[in-house]
Amino acid sequence: MAWFVKIERGIVDKKRFDRYVPAHKAYVKELIAQGHQAKTGYWGDFGGGMLLFEAESEEVAKTIVANDPLILNGCVEYELHQWCIVVD
């Protein structure tokens, strides 16, 4: 499995964004239960956040991101990158 990171920037107002946060958290918990070792969080000093997870391939990673409620509901713009760990 490879590591991937979705780096995101909010594009809607906070009220709309916050409406989908519980679904996003539930989705991440589902990813954890499926073995993707997902972690999610936001930047403390500016808007946006990150989802870090393992996936079998880039195609699977794209599907995982596409099904995130924050993406499905048009709350964020994002970049998806494979993260190559140098020291573990």
Rank of each mutant, 00 (worst) to 15 (best):
60 V>P: 07
73 N>I: 01
40 T>D: 09
85 I>Q: 10
40 T>E: 12
54 E>Q: 14
64 I>L: 10
25 K>G: 00
86 V>A: 08
38 A>C: 07
67 N>F: 03
73 N>R: 06
11 I>R: 14
60 V>K: 15
15 K>W: 10
53 F>C: 02
20 Y>T: 02
69 P>I: 05
13 D>N: 13
55 A>P: 11
26 A>I: 05
56 E>C: 00
59 E>P: 06
6 K>T: 12
74 G>Y: 02
31 L>Q: 07
58 E>T: 11
48 G>Y: 08
9 R>K: 15
23 A>I: 00
27 Y>A: 02
46 F>C: 11
34 Q>R: 15
67 N>R: 14
67 N>Q: 14
75 C>M: 07
65 V>L: 05
41 G>D: 05
51 L>T: 12
82 Q>G: 00
83 W>S: 00
45 D>R: 09
81 H>R: 14
42 Y>Q: 10
20 Y>K: 03
84 C>A: 01
58 E>G: 10
62 K>Y: 02
49 G>A: 04
40 T>A: 14
26 A>R: 13
62 K>H: 09
4 F>I: 08
10 G>R: 12
55 A>Q: 07
76 V>W: 06
20 Y>W: 13
72 L>H: 01
52 L>H: 07
13 D>F: 03
36 H>D: 04
55 A>F: 07
68 D>G: 01
41 G>E: 02
43 W>M: 05
46 F>R: 15
57 S>T: 12
15 K>P: 09
77 E>G: 06
52 L>P: 02
32 I>R: 14
4 F>W: 12
17 F>D: 11
86 V>R: 11
19 R>Q: 15
64 I>Y: 08
56 E>S: 11
37 Q>G: 02
70 L>A: 01
37 Q>V: 03
41 G>M: 04
35 G>W: 04
42 Y>T: 14
49 G>C: 01
4 F>H: 10
41 G>V: 04
45 D>C: 06
60 V>R: 15
11 I>L: 03
40 T>H: 10
14 K>Q: 15
24 H>Q: 03
77 E>M: 08
44 G>M: 10
51 L>F: 00
20 Y>R: 07
70 L>C: 04
55 A>W: 08
58 E>K: 14
63 T>Y: 04
45 D>L: 07
56 E>L: 04
15 K>Y: 09
59 E>D: 15
9 R>H: 12
68 D>S: 02
44 G>H: 10
25 K>Q: 08
62 K>M: 08
25 K>I: 13
39 K>W: 12
68 D>M: 05
79 E>F: 12
76 V>Y: 08
18 D>R: 13
